[in-house]
């Protein structure tokens, strides 16, 4: 049976995005439990670290998707022109 790697890649993009969002929220929870929630400065640091964690996760997600996308696209049959099935 031949897998549709394009569909698998699209499912991967959603699942990996979801895991990365949850991972970055876990990191924020860990930071909150260490620093606490009292004080404006600490709250600001937590918000900034939270945004950095989410942005980093988004960047990782995009780079992994791009790498896999190019690999699938350039290795697929008939990649030298339009048409296909």
């Amino acid at each position: 049976m031949e897998f549709d790697r394009g569909l698998l890649l699209a499912i991967y993009s959603v699942l990996s995005g979801w895991v990365l969002v949850l991972g970055s929220l876990l990191l924020i929870k860990a930071i909150i439990s260490v620093l606490g929630t009292r004080g404006f400065l600490i709250a600001m640091i937590e918000v900034i670290v939270g945004f950095l964690a989410l942005s980093g996760a988004l960047y990782l997600w995009y780079m992994s998707l791009r790498t896999l996308f190019l690999r699938v696209k350039l290795s697929s049959e008939g990649h030298s022109g339009p048409g296909g099935t």
Binding site: D4, R5, G6, L7, L9, A10, S13, L65, R66, F69, V72, K73, S76, E77, G78, P82, G83, G84, T85
Partner: peptide, 14 residues
């Protein structure tokens, strides 16, 4: 550019 349609059709035309 990468789009969702491009991802879905990266392996075969649809």
């Amino acid at each position: 550019p990468i789009s969702l349609i491009a991802v879905l059709t990266s392996d075969r035309g649809k």
